[in-house]
Design a protein around this nucleic acid. Structure first.
Lengths: 146, 146
DNA sequence: CTTTAATCAGACAATAAAATCTGATTACAA
DNA sequence: TTGTAATCAGATTTTATTGTCTGATTAAAG
């Protein structure tokens, strides 16, 4: 199977978009996120713990604790989440898996793939959580009603 | 970790490009491919067996047997290899892993990601093995000299 | 102060992907 | 016709990812 982001990263992106879509001054429990997004509770908890260490997410312990964004949604880019969870290997490694793929010793797809990859990188760098708020609300609203 | 193609698919693409770069009237053993591309011998053997079933690769059994392309290099597109090994999930599934992602109920990245994905699909559909022959020869030449 | 409900830490289990092994079959060549 | 070297088939092992469990810690609320 082909994968763009790991499951961990997909879940992380979903959860962070969810936090951004809700009022981010209130913490949200991993249970709510798990229920609304159909993600195993313990798993999303682990993922958000990681993002907390990365400084992207804030966590409040104890009763009525939960998670919120650590910064304004407009200051969190999708690439920040991807970098924190999956790293930037996708943008560095050779798409064909050839060793030492570089401009000096390019793989057969180096230029063409490089261009596409740059577009993807730019998109993830330009998109911030606040820009996706409306679309996220629509999407999670639909998930709820299914 | 983030992955575009599975390791299997990377290896498969490398091997098929290798077959196309050599004179494709002669069969090449999995051992040679393994040596030249640094791919585990048994693994690339398995992968090429799969591509043989898919009709993309020809195999000759017995002593002095090996693999060759089943068609002219210009009639084999990269997307054919990807489809045979990884399938088209990468182009169908939601990039964020949301359920029921469709034009009617799009995920927050549906349009922007869709455009990038279409470009990737088109590239893989346009590129055929013969077009990449020169670049492949250069690349495998360098691997050999490392 | 005690109960409750949350994160947190780390071990554990299940699944999937990658790689290896064993033996059978095939076909060329001496 | 016998030995050799290859694909082929399928089981097995290894490794990484995904998912679960247990218990500790934290903090709010009665």
């Amino acid at each position: 199977m082909t994968v763009i982001f790991s499951k961990k990263c997909e879940y992380g992106l979903q959860a962070v978009l969810y936090l951004a879509a809700k009022n981010n001054s209130v913490v949200i429990s991993s249970e709510e996120i798990s229920d609304k997004l159909n993600i195993p509770k313990e798993f999303i908890s682990k993922i958000l713990q990681g993002l907390t260490e990365s400084g992207l997410v804030y966590s409040k312990k104890g009763k009525s604790g939960g998670f919120a964004l650590a910064k304004e949604p407009k200051k969190i880019r999708l690439i920040d989440i991807v970098t924190a969870i999956d790293g930037l290997g996708m943008f560095d490694n050779c798409v064909l898996g050839f060793p030492q793929c570089s401009p000096d010793h390019p793989c057969p797809l180096h230029e063409k793939w490089g261009a596409l990859r740059t577009n993807a990188y730019n998109m993830l760098t330009e998109e911030t959580l606040d820009q996706l708020k409306e679309k996220t609300l629509k999407k999670i609203g639909y998930i709820g009603h299914k």
